[in-house]
């Protein structure tokens, strides 16, 4: 008894930090400093950034130019079209491929490994690099941009979706197979209803991603509003640039709000 009483009054010994964690922190700090030097880090640029006289040329925004239909509105429509068609095609293809990429529902082991391998490679190339590659392959314009976003959104979607399928309840599928269901109908009736809400939620996410990506695709020549941004920047019309940016900003915020509202209703 006296032991316990003594133990309460004595302050517990502070655990000593391990040498390993010190070494890790120092190594990371050293790497950070080294990396900062390598890329030309300057404290001064935090100040220069704001005091640069070039900012004055961003104001006032020529609203009559911005609201002219041909200047901003039409390329913006093209942006939406790229995002919509790549989301629809990418997500439709993701349904069967996502099932093939899950251990639970894959038709065969080779299909499982091949689809995973290919999709991991595709996902490792960022969306704008796909844009640049496809512009080179099939020519400048919205068509190449749609291909790029379709491929990239397919790769993102199958990753998210296949892991949801992995986590799905395996028992209904077992029951469907025990009742003699063939592979596709069994998956369709036993797994699909379970994962479909997640599929729709991810599809909305991918749509949001695609809207954001398609806004900048034009910087590499793949169509949409980014093309206008690039031309105005290279001709130093910064006031027009700011007008376009404000509109892009509004669109991203509106789309996000809509998407959040729909996703909330889905739950």
């Amino acid at each position: 008894m006296s032991d316990t009483a003594a133990a309460v009054t004595v302050r517990p010994r502070k655990p000593r930090p391990q040498i390993r964690s010190y070494v890790l922190v120092i190594a990371l700090a050293a790497f950070t400093l080294f990396a900062a030097r390598q890329i030309g880090f300057r404290w001064g640029s935090f100040i220069d950034m704001w005091t640069n006289p070039l900012w004055d040329r961003f104001w006032p925004v020529p609203w009559d130019w911005v609201f002219n239909r041909h200047n901003v509105f039409d390329p913006l429509i093209e942006t939406f079209q790229i995002a919509i068609i790549s989301t629809v095609i990418g997500c439709s293809l993701a349904l069967p491929i996502g099932f093939a990429m899950s251990k639970l529902t894959t038709p065969s082991t080779p299909v499982f490994w091949v689809s995973r391998f290919v999709m991991n490679i595709v996902r490792a190339i960022p969306d704008l690099l796909w844009g640049k590659l496809l512009v080179t392959a099939i020519g400048i314009g919205a068509f190449a941009g749609s291909w790029a976003l379709t491929i990239f959104s397919l790769a993102v979607m199958v990753k998210l979706f296949s892991e949801t399928v992995d986590a799905a309840d395996p028992l209904p599928l077992e029951a469907a197979r025990a009742a003699g269901g063939r592979h596709t109908p069994a998956v369709r009736t036993a797994v699909l209803p379970d994962v479909f809400p997640a599929y729709v939620a991810y599809a909305l996410y991918v749509f949001e991603l695609n809207i954001r990506a398609s806004l900048v695709l034009g910087l590499v020549g793949a169509g949409g509003i980014g093309r206008v941004v690039e031309t105005q920047r290279s001709t130093f019309n910064f006031d027009r640039l700011l007008g376009i940016l404000i509109i892009m900003f509004a669109i991203v915020i509106i789309i996000e709000q809509i998407s959040v509202a729909i996703r909330k209703r889905l739950v």
Partner: peptide
């Protein structure tokens, strides 16, 4: 936070490049 999130980083980089000049530091910023 929300305002920053809404601007694509490529656009931010493009503006910073115009103002601070080309280079990896503008990209990191």
């Amino acid at each position: 936070f929300n305002a920053i999130r809404a601007v694509p980083e490529l656009i931010v980089a493009m503006l910073l490049l115009t103002v601070t000049g080309l280079g990896p530091w503008a990209g990191a910023l």
